[in-house]
Design a binder for these strands. Structure first.
Lengths: 127, 127, 127, 127
DNA sequence: GTGGTCTAGACCACT
DNA sequence: GTGGTCTAGACCACA
């Protein structure tokens, strides 16, 4: 499913959150898809079940998955009607900051623009 | 200069790093500008001097400032000749991930594209 | 493991860095080997844990070890594919300077040459 | 004569020591040559005279120069009869350590050997 | 005055 | 148990 990097500075719990979120966001896990159970995933990754448990709980709080007792855990379907404007603004700020840094690192307006276009056209591959 | 958010999950030293980096990247602190001294900033923020020093040290390792013992700490001038391609790739990945999340949150290709254009045209204000 | 020299002009943390680096470089600590924990080493050396941690952090930044929170600190395996040419040049300059000093101290070209050969043949013992 | 690097981690005093030592060791300043006076050099480098004073004193203690009150400061002639074996051993250890690091960085025995030969043949230029 | 180092002891998150 | 962070307060070298 995905690999952990023990040498990373990120905690294991955080890596599980980020990787799982990535799978859901990018559409590899489609809405209503069943996720591996806590025990199963903890075996696969050879980490403590508590760690996976905690990661799933965090993702549930953020709305990326939901749990049905006795059945399992499933990818949530994003409610396209209720766009979380607050979260969008957070992301916008993050991108703004990243763009500034690209300029600081010496990239020109044109280069940054090209980079963004490239990222946008990649999109076909995600959907 | 900037505010700390004690309620944040980010550690204090990390907030200092991020805020100071922002000031340097965005050009508020220009190359060779003197930064507040460790003691001074620690008083302003009412945190321990060691915490500020740790942040300054981290920024120095990342090349955003340099230190002259006995004189103070100064904003570095980015070496525009040596573009850190590794770092640029890290940022590219971060943006890619953010774009995916925007789509997941229900934004259309056109909306995302518009958002990026807006961010790019803001640039006049930073330079 | 190693001894500190409190009378030395080198700071304690620097001595820890140098000694530990020596152990890693010379292969006494092999890649993936666990290093003594921060607390353990601080007890052995009767210094403050913070001092040891600072040393470990420095070594991590330089790529000689890596850290897994909750598990411990481990010797890194040098990435033989990516030779750090910059660092190699630094070392070359240091050796050049040392050779000059040997000549200044009255050694002849032959003596210096012999000394180097001797050092090179020692190598069997390190590997 | 030489340049200071204010951005360096080395203290100014240390840089003066190292640079001056380099000039003497490499033969640019020959035995009995007069060195710039403390005042003169401090003006040239635009640093505090105390800093230069301290550097000269350190170099005198290490035997690289001597001072004649009222006349000035002069490069010492190394006493070739009394080779400082202790110092030679220190340098040998430093080189040994550097060689280990080169191997650690992925250089082969042949490459290191070639590097040393190259440094040795450079010697014509120093003498 | 500046930054650099160190101590003693505390609390937290993660495994 | 591990490392990560933070505080309060001390001393040093350098400019």
């Amino acid at each position: 499913m995905f690999q952990l990097d023990l040498k990373s500075r990120k905690s294991i719990y955080e890596q599980v959150v980020d990787n799982m979120k990535e799978l859901i966001i990018s559409g590899v896990l489609k809405p209503e898809d069943k996720l591996p159970s806590v025990r199963e995933l903890s075996k696969t990754l050879t980490v403590n079940p508590n760690t996976v448990q905690k990661a799933y709980r965090a993702l549930e709080n953020q709305g990326y998955l939901y749990t049905v007792a006795g059945l399992g855990t499933f990818a949530a379907c994003p409610d396209t009607n209720i766009r979380d404007e607050r979260l969008i603004n957070v992301i916008r700020d993050r991108i703004r900051s990243d763009l500034k840094e690209l300029f600081y690192l010496g990239m020109s307006q044109e280069e940054v623009s090209a980079l963004l276009k490239e990222l946008l056209t990649e999109r076909g591959g995600w959907k």
